[in-house]
Nucleic acid binder design. Structure first.
Lengths: 357, 357
DNA sequence: CTGAAAGCGCTTACAG
DNA sequence: CTGAAAGCGCTTACAG
């Protein structure tokens, strides 16, 4: 490794001057010296030692990617195509702007805290964190942060939310199913820690609330269903267990109810695909006997037969935006808006059939 | 953050002594002092500053996870369920033993080199690297390394390969298809950089070779097909493009050939699933008209209809083993074997039908 | 048995 | 306009 000292030697100046040029503190350095040093820096592809940077409190250029849940759909989270794609996108963008991504298994706050302070990360990106959980952490950790797919009520400017317009996504699903003749369609979502606790309580009271994306989706769905003056009861919001076996059991129990409703909106493609196969195994034809809509438009949505009607979100863009916003915060900018929501779009394929008469 | 100095102050000793206790250099420290210091260390949950550790050349506790390809199946690699699961497993295990995982987009060697030396990583885990590419890197970078799913011919002890028994996997597929009445089955694999270049050349000459897992699988497949004295030509090894559109074109072109063969073994579940749907769209029934076998047993293998017959590999275990071996190398152990291959097992489901007569 | 001191590669307030 | 020196938190050879 080439050191600052080496550069200084080559240029015939002191380390101080090189450092000053490096940091743009060039007010009182001659143009000649600047040019000379810059050239040498270039030629030698100088990279400051990270250990030193950390020690001198100049940040680490590390972005911690905190995954708030260990398992989704009963599999390790990073297996989830959505998380995988998001991570790919974040990693890619970070690399482009000279940051490094360190993965933090975020299931326990203590752990996040420990890694973040030990590594002196410059910023954090959270996925799968509720506002409450984040605030808990926030009190003990003063870092720039971007939350992905978390909805907040309070207005604060030390963190940001990057998401998609989940409400609109849910709304589009609701509207479409209504139009296709399913005024009693259900909305099915996999349980998260949040949903399992406080959120459900708040949901039951039909009051406005914040939480994870799935709840927003339901709210949109509900609003669409109610647009002609009908009431869409909270009972049509079905929360199913995270564990695959238990989920299957619940599906079996609720099958008559599903068939009566005629159509199901899902919070994820994964669950929608799972349902399509579950129904296949029970001799029930999709969409002839039951219509199904997903969310995400993951790569398997086009694979499954019938091809899945779903809501497309641009995960790659989400990752890029998250990194970009975080970078700006790290560099000291104050961003005007708290939320960034990318638009979503219903992709109609073959898993919904218009109800007769 | 609590510093070494703070601990020393509390114990009423010097930093040196604390450091000595920390590193087990306790030959000439009184038991009393040791106990006292250890207790304080515990109580304060002391964690040495990483920047200092890096600066004093004591390693970084970083494991670089190098992903050798940007895209698989035309999607970002970390979206691939296999990579995702492997990453999850590595991350988990690393966290358990106090290491940290940094992702390195490994498509260019220069980049890997730069990050590895700048961060002074303790070790590297490579996925999707050919032996040739790794050796190239190896000359400029002296780090402990574990290669996942790369097969090597040379015997060296400064790196390790962790894989599954791909040969056996291919063999099991070949044997099964033979037994089910398909002596002319084909083996279909997605192109990699290696396959596109040197390996194909070597393959054509039917000589022994090293490369990525897919080639081993084909070798096993071929051996099984040849066990009754028949010859299995290299022409039955079909390499298809990485780009989805091109792949589809090739499938269309080769469809008559596929149907004549009656059965296809695939190098990955992804490609097998893709084929099942491709066939569905062309009105061809699986397994009635064409039998299909996958590889990996990913979570979608049970989802697709017909459920996919495939080779199961234990990806989680692979990740754990990779980290464990790397740790031992980092700690200075010399490991006796170069290869670790986990066994694989054919999982028979519904995508192969016995050929009549 | 224990501690003072030098050094890792950088930054920055300060002196010239 | 430029550089000598102190300091970040740790390790380690060395002196006592």
């Amino acid at each position: 490794m080439i050191r600052l000292q080496d550069i200084a030697d080559m240029a015939g100046v002191s380390r101080t001057t090189v450092s000053n040029v490096l940091h743009g503190k060039t007010k009182r350095v001659s143009q000649e010296t600047i040019d000379k040093i810059k050239k040498i820096l270039e030629e030698n592809d100088y990279q400051p030692n990270i250990g030193s940077m950390m020690l001198t409190g100049k940040g680490s250029r590390i972005i911690g990617f905190v995954i708030g849940y260990d398992y989704t759909h009963g599999y390790p989270s990073t297996m989830d195509p959505f998380i995988g794609q998001l991570l790919a996108s974040i990693q890619n963008q970070a690399e482009k702007i000279g940051y490094y991504v360190m993965i933090i298994g975020g299931s326990t706050e203590k752990h996040v805290l420990e890694i973040a302070s030990r590594w002196n990360v410059d910023g954090l990106i959270f996925i799968g964190y509720s506002e409450g959980r984040y605030r808990e952490l926030r009190r003990k950790l003063n870092k720039k942060a971007v939350l992905v797919d978390t909805y907040t009520l309070q207005k604060e400017y030390d963190y940001q939310n990057v998401g998609i317009d989940d409400y609109s996504g849910g709304y589009q699903v609701g509207e479409y199913l209504l139009e296709m003749g399913y005024p009693n369609a259900l909305y099915v979502v996999e349980e998260t820690k949040v949903l399992a606790n406080e959120a459900v309580r708040r949901l039951r009271s039909d009051k406005p609330f914040a939480g994870l994306c799935n709840e927003k989706r339901w709210q949109g769905f509900k609003a669409a269903m109610e647009k002609n003056g009908n009431f869409c009861s909270i009972r049509r919001f079905i929360v199913v267990p995270r564990e695959a076996q238990l989920r299957k059991l619940q599906y079996e129990r609720m099958l008559p109810q599903f068939l009566e409703a005629g159509a199901l909106g899902f919070g994820s493609d994964y669950n929608a695909i799972e349902m399509i196969n579950f129904l296949h195994d029970h001799g029930i034809k999709v969409p002839d006997q039951l219509s199904v809509v997903g969310f995400d438009d993951c790569m398997y949505a086009e694979f499954i037969r019938p091809r899945l009607t779903t809501v497309r979100q641009d995960v790659l863009r989400k990752g890029i935006t998250a990194v970009e916003r975080l970078r700006r915060m790290i560099e000291g900018e104050t961003l005007p808006e708290m939320y960034v929501s990318a638009p979503v779009e219903l992709v109609v394929r073959d898993s919904v059939r218009r109800r007769d008469g």
